[in-house]
Design a protein around this nucleic acid. Structure first.
Length: 665
RNA sequence: GCCCGGGUGGCGGAAUGGUAGACGCAGGGGACUUAAAAUCCCCUUUCCGCAAGGAAGUGUGGGUUCGAGUCCCGCCCCGGGCACCA
């Protein structure tokens, strides 16, 4: 288990980032503890598959794909040679009369095509077969190696790439070649992934190559790349590229991809293995050695064993205790509370003991969206009709730091509840967008970097509306951006000008046609940008309109400025509400309709047509919006600044209606 | 190493294959003012030129196209995810 010595609790794999606790940054240790898990790994294929149907930020989906970590390959069985009969003999062909002890070593590989090059096996030091496989002669060194590996924490073990290992003294049979190959243990093989054992193909795997070189194990080429043959020496590194099989008997000449399928089929027919898909996603450890949290509703009874607390007795409430601080024992503070700890067994009524761990807080946040619409109901978790009306969540915006935490857990819980018939959907968040990170002084804001911004100071100085609008303006929402103090003044100035425009408006003046054209273009632009989360360009469009509205300190007509207040409202709600009141409305701006635009106002009869000659922009001409190609060309020739570039008969003329004319000469 | 993003003025950033640099910051000049602040107007990619004008230009090298920041191929750099995962 991952143990955080600072938080004094175990952590799920998802809550360990680069070997450190997700919450406090302390390096985690490894401890052996019995814990409760949710079987999320069973859902790995679905969690992965469904990603293709979700409208989520690409980065978030990719993070989940990486975390789930699908790999297609094969599980292969290597029979172990009877250690008494064959120990000590050198690698000889034993195709006939293989005497095996009946044990098999199962390995997972993504390269079944290279099995003819598997010259040894490696087990993780913790592999359950190690004891049985270790010969008396090797017992000392193996025992010592395992002890050393167990003491070393997982982080340094995973990061130090220096290969170490010991020979067990036993041999297995390569099911393809029939040759006997030595069985080693080494800490570069991890018990927690695959079967905890690998077939080593040093010719075509960098790690195996390094190990084989160090311990002088045989290296065989079984794949030949372009310009290589079966005899081409491997040199000083493994060949991991594509190619065709060599030194692989009947499979020689097949491509790597073909051979993966055919070798697996062949081994399957010989009962030596089968194709499998492996995932790196582990089960979710939900036990926590804390006080605050929902107790895991399990009772341990000497007669009945592990008994779940029946539904009628749920929830198990926390006892009110003064000493709720966790300690380093690995046991929850609840265990110190005798009265609570001892409870009758729900099944037989005899004295029994409660589970003292509480569940991970991520379990709570994994279903809060189900609870929220039904908070009015105390009798049930969530009401079916209400849930059907409001869920799944249409659009969810959050941080990518939850990609493999909250967002993965929520999907899993939703799937489980769906399968239990409690929900009509199996994905909780139809659309998810990850907001970007705000960068300041060249780094993402963090307490340790000392570059965090306290919003209160900015709100005091600039106002909440300015601060909020600035955050939306400083860069694309999904990419984040640079927070620079100097940038706020522009947004503040915009809101000030809006205030003045409303205050000084002319109630009787008729709106100007050109201004109204711009207004309608702005309504259109903002209306399109907001759902696309392009807040920065929406604000820019409103600023642009403000420049037109207040050009030369003109006094705007009411009809020119009133809709702008509605457009601004989602960005700067306080000032918008106040301005709306100033405009004489008795109800909230948020109860007013979103302004609509008149498309017929947007187009004018004459347009500026950009003229290119040979692809280079040479100027523009004013033409009717539905100008013909010939008329446009004539207009271009008539313009002296453009005409001088049009020498001779045009070879080709391209007119992009309403936009551009390109004359190729 | 693998997989995602991204690379555009002094800066933050705009650009359905069609005027690169919208909008904002910073900078310069001007109007108003006794003055300052505020407000308003103009300029501000680089190079050549007094100017008119011209040339170059979106990390880099090629390619497709009448036309490429945008599409395709190779490379470099930055940010993020995964990583002794077989």
């Amino acid at each position: 288990m991952n143990w955080c010595p600072s938080c004094k609790t175990v952590l799920a794999n998802e809550q360990v980032e680069g070997g450190a606790c997700e919450r406090c940054g302390t390096m985690v240790e490894q401890r052996f503890l019995e814990q409760w898990f949710f079987n999320i790994s069973k859902y790995a294929p679905r969690l992965l598959e469904n990603l293709n149907t979700l409208d989520w930020s690409a980065t978030t989906k990719q993070a989940q794909r990486n975390w789930i970590g699908r790999s297609d390959g094969a599980r292969l069985r290597f029979p172990v040679l009877d250690p008494l009969a064959d120990a000590g003999s050198s690698a000889v062909s034993v195709t006939t009369e293989v005497r095996t002890g009946g044990t098999n070593i199962e390995v997972f590989t993504t390269r079944p095509d290279t099995i003819f090059g598997a010259t040894y096996l490696v087990l993780a030091p913790e592999h359950p077969l190690v004891d049985a496989l270790t010969t008396p002669m090797q017992d000392g060194v193996v025992r010592e190696y395992r002890a050393r590996a167990s003491k070393q924490d997982l982080v340094s073990r995973k990061t130090s790439k220096e290969k170490t290992g010991e020979f067990t003294g036993s041999y297995a049979v390569n099911p393809a070649t029939g040759e006997m190959i030595p069985i080693w243990i080494a800490d570069y093989v991890l018990m927690e992934y695959g079967t905890g054992a690998i077939m080593a193909v040093p010719g075509h795997d960098e790690r195996d190559f390094e190990f084989a070189t160090k311990f002088e194990l045989p290296i065989v080429r079984v794949v030949a790349g372009e310009g290589q043959t079966a005899k081409t020496p491997l040199g000083d590194e493994a060949y991991v590229g594509d190619g065709v099989l060599v030194n692989s008997e009947q499979f020689d000449g097949l491509s790597v991809d073909d051979a993966k399928v055919k070798v697996t089929a062949w081994l399957t027919s010989r009962h030596a293995g089968e194709a499998v898909t492996n995932y790196r996603l582990h089960d979710w450890c939900i036990s926590r050695q804390r006080y605050w949290g929902p107790p895991i509703p399990i009772v341990y009874c000497d007669s009945c064993g592990t008994v779940p607390v029946p539904e009628s007795q749920l929830p198990v409430l926390l006892p009110n205790i003064p000493d709720f601080k966790p300690d380093d024992s690995g046991v929850s503070p609840l265990a110190r509370h005798e009265e609570w700890y001892h409870t009758p067994c729900p099944r037989c009524g005899k004295q029994a003991r409660r589970e003292t761990d509480v569940s991970d807080t991520f379990l709570d946040s994994a279903w809060y969206f189900l609870r929220y619409p039904s908070v009015g109901r105390d009798d049930i978790a969530f009401d079916a009709a209400t849930t059907k009306k409001w869920l799944p969540v249409t659009t969810y915006i959050g941080g990518n730091e939850h990609a493999v935490l909250h967002l993965l857990y929520s999907r899993f819980i939703t799937m489980v509840l769906h399968d239990a018939g409690l929900l009509g959907f199996e994905e909780p968040f139809t659309k998810f967008r990850a907001h970007g990170l705000i960068i300041r002084e060249g780094a993402k804001m963090s307490k340790s970097k000392g570059n965090v911004v306290n919003p209160d100071e900015y709100i005091d100085k600039w106002g909440a509306d300015s601060f909020r609008t600035y955050l939306m303006f400083l860069g694309p929402f999904e990419e984040g951006g640079d927070f620079r103090d100097s940038g706020i003044s522009g947004v503040k100035r915009f809101l000030d000008r809006l205030w003045i425009a409303v205050r000084d408006r002319d109630e009787s003046a008729a709106p100007d046609a050109e201004v109204m054209r711009k207004l309608h273009a702005t309504i259109k632009k903002v209306g399109e940008d907001v759902p696309a989360l392009s807040y920065n360009t929406a604000i820019a469009a409103m600023m642009e309109y403000m420049n037109v509205l207040r050009k030369g300190e003109r006094t705007p007509a009411r009809g020119e400025v009133e809709p702008l207040v509605q457009l601004v409202a989602p960005f700067a709600p306080h000032i918008a509400e106040e301005l709306w009141t100033m405009l004489g409305h008795a109800t909230s701006v948020f109860d007013s309709r979103w302004p609509t635009f008149d498309a017929s106002l947007l187009a004018s009869d004459e347009i500026e047509l950009v003229v290119q000659v040979g692809g280079k922009t040479r100027g523009k001409v004013l033409v009717p919006k539905d100008v013909t190609q010939d008329a446009a060309l004539a207009a271009a020739k008539a313009d002296p600044a453009i005409g001088k570039f049009i020498i001779g008969e045009p070879k080709k003329v391209i007119l992009v209606p309403g936009r551009l004319l390109n004359v190729v000469v």
